[in-house]
Design a protein around this nucleic acid. Structure first.
Ligand SMILES: [Mn+2]
Ligand SMILES: [Mn+2]
Ligand SMILES: [Mn+2]
Ligand SMILES: [Mn+2]
Lengths: 156, 156
DNA sequence: GGTTTAATGTAGCCAAGGCAACACTTCGCG
DNA sequence: CGCGAAGTGTTGCCTTGGCTACATTAAACC
């Protein structure tokens, strides 16, 4: 049932298996960090806007049960991104604030970029929520370049 | 410790919590489908290139242990995307082929788009592997519009 | 101040997606 | 044909990230 003869000859362009594996590993890693990044971003926003970040509010903004949020917050504490004491709300460590700032900037850039491309606002917000976690520094820079150019009226 | 007086007044622009929750729910759902989509895309590629898709080859391309691949393939079967009998390789159902075609097109478009934006090739490949799962039809169309315009020499 | 209500925390359950270790087929080669 | 190597499948274990149900604490209201 093999197409041609015996010695496997690649028709178009064989992918280097190691590199492809590395790409998928990177994507898996980014996927694993995505939830953490969203939590930290939301906590920072609540702290700045409301002065406090309560588990219930975090859960409501993420659309999950409060028990889920509390468990995830425990992981943030374990990983040195947040601090919290019972019934006293959630706070960010320096590392947490760093991540939050980075993610806020990334989020805004990705949304602005999609809007500039002509994506409808609601769709842009939804897609950005996922895309932001897979945008490397190089790609983010490319997005910003595009935005700067678009701001200059599409000229050069 | 609340910033101002008592009635919580939002300084900049308060996010509608329901809509934000819906956005995060969409992102979670896309994240959950990502792995399935990559498996199906790889299986289709192996079937087309080599005439067969063996669990070990699938695992190698994804960079996971073969036991992991076999377990995931069982889920694909359960979900009506693949068929497989012991020691006889993996095949796709019609639904599997549909998904594979869609993901292949999406993958190629995202990579081409990032390249057109000036992202280095290796980075584009890595980022695309994650981004492709969060690109809605509307955003994909915007990417294609941009590519078509770029092909026309940046004119109109 | 006491009581109701809301928030918080805990426990136990589940599915997905990883892994290593071991057992069993199948394939290729002499 | 037989045997060793490669591929395959199974088992058991783990973490993450969901949920519900229940207990407990704090806040709000009368
Ligand atoms: Mn996000
Ligand atoms: Mn975000
Ligand atoms: Mn992918
Ligand atoms: Mn892909």
């Amino acid at each position: 049932m093999t197409p041609q003869d015996d010695t496997a000859l690649p028709e178009t362009s064989a992918p280097a298996p190691e590199e492809e594996a590395a790409r998928h590993a990177s994507a898996r890693s980014a996927r694993a960090s995505a939830l953490t990044e969203d939590y930290v971003e939301i906590i920072a926003d609540l702290l700045e806007r409301e002065g406090e970040a309560r588990p219930t509010d975090i859960a409501r903004r993420l659309g999950v049960a409060h028990a889920t949020a509390i468990k995830t917050i425990a992981r943030l504490k374990r990983d040195g991104l947040a601090r919290a004491r019972p019934y006293r709300g959630v706070f960010l460590t320096d590392r947490g604030w760093d991540m939050a700032r980075k993610m806020k900037a990334r989020h805004q850039t990705v949304v602005a970029f999609l809007l500039a491309l002509g994506v409808p606002a609601e769709v842009a917000e939804v897609d950005a929520e996922g895309i932001e976690h897979h945008v490397s520094d190089a790609t983010l820079a490319a997005f910003e370049r595009f935005l700067a150019q678009a701001a200059r009226g599409d000229g050069r």
